[in-house]
Computed example of a mutant assay.
Amino acid sequence: MPNMVDPMLATLTSPEVVLIGSWLIEPKYDGERIIAVRSGDEISLWTRRNIQASYKFPEIIKALKDNIDGDDWILDGEMTVAGGFRQLLNRNVEDRFRISLLSRKNPATYNIFDIIHHEKDLLNLPIIERKGILMKVVHPNTNIAIVPFHEVEKIEEEFLYYIKQGFEGVVIKNSYSKYEPGRRSDQWLKIKKGDTVDVNIIGATKSTGSIPFGALLMEKDGKYFGKVGTGFSDQDRVDILKLLIENQEPLKIKVPPKVESEILVTSKPLLAEIKMQEMIKRSPRAPVWVRFRWND
């Protein structure tokens, strides 16, 4: 019987990255990461944060039952709907009647890019072999697709090609990489498009581990603008925390109570630049640290 596994994560990089050896490239979809598990007659869908999402996608459950060989497997993929991530958010409801209506009005597609269990554990097989198994046991239909892939040659050209095709970016995977549950690995790399936006950094939150801080607090136009917690090197974190401590002053804007309880240090506003995918309800989606804007 297969158990739920935490998804393997890719490390963010740039189109100028230099690769050694054999690597595969595939498009990055604008959706939600989903692990699908079948054990006997039961199929379950799990988000990256281990939340059950099966009831939200009845059309996918049926498609998986009818179009995947075997009754003992674990798949990894991206759930999408027409219109992108904003439309996918509409499926985040509890009402069964509304879910049924949405599944017919704007059905989802499960875009599968990996198989990590099929009658036996496949975690230690190279991804090129797992892809071969995937293509044998998955029979695509209107609700299930296999993510296309091929050996990468010119990274920057192919990245721009996929962006023009409307994808969010690309993921590049070492052809011989094993599946490492829950780990952000340098054997999987992602390159994403993103818009930049100017913000003020006004503090940092506590870290739950050994790093100097968890995330930076952002302010824009006099209002709280969320947190940015990725894009830093280890040395960046050390230097930034030192800078915030040197510029300490009390917060002058309101932040959510949960955020307030996490605060490590607050600072006078320091102009910075972040990358983001888009704005969702006045907050940046997937913000990534770029730099302080000292000379602007």
Score class of each variant (00 low, 15 high):
Leu19Lys: 08
Ser261Leu: 08
Gln277Ile: 13
Ala53Met: 12
Pro126His: 06
Lys105Gly: 00
Ser210Ile: 12
Ser185Ala: 09
Val259Trp: 04
Lys254Leu: 07
Ala204Arg: 08
Met4Gly: 00
Ala82Val: 11
Val259Glu: 14
Arg48Cys: 03
Asp186Lys: 15
Ser44Pro: 00
Lys164Leu: 12
Gln277Asn: 11
Glu260His: 11
Lys164Arg: 15
Pro126Cys: 06
Asp234Tyr: 05
Glu249Asn: 05
Ser267Arg: 07
Val5Glu: 10
Leu24Met: 15
Pro15Tyr: 11
Ile172Tyr: 01
Ile112Thr: 01
Leu134His: 05
Trp294Ile: 04
Glu119Leu: 05
Thr266Trp: 05
Asp186His: 14
Asn247Val: 06
Val265Tyr: 06
Leu9Asp: 08
Leu88Asn: 04
Phe292Gln: 09
Trp23Pro: 01
Asp69Val: 00
Ile60Arg: 00
Thr142Gln: 15
Ser233Met: 08
Gln235Thr: 10
Ile61Lys: 14
Lys193Ile: 07
Asp221Pro: 00
Glu273Ala: 05
Ala63Arg: 06
Lys254His: 03
Lys254Met: 01
Trp294Ser: 09
Ser267Ile: 03
Lys120Asp: 11
Arg282Trp: 04
Asp236Val: 03
Lys268Gly: 10
Pro269Gln: 06
Thr47Arg: 06
Leu45Gln: 10
Lys220Asp: 03
Arg49Trp: 02
Leu217Ala: 07
Ala82Phe: 09
Val137Thr: 14
Val5Ala: 02
Ile128Lys: 13
Arg48Pro: 04
Ala215Asp: 15
Ile155Asn: 04
Thr208Cys: 00
Met276Cys: 06
Lys105Phe: 11
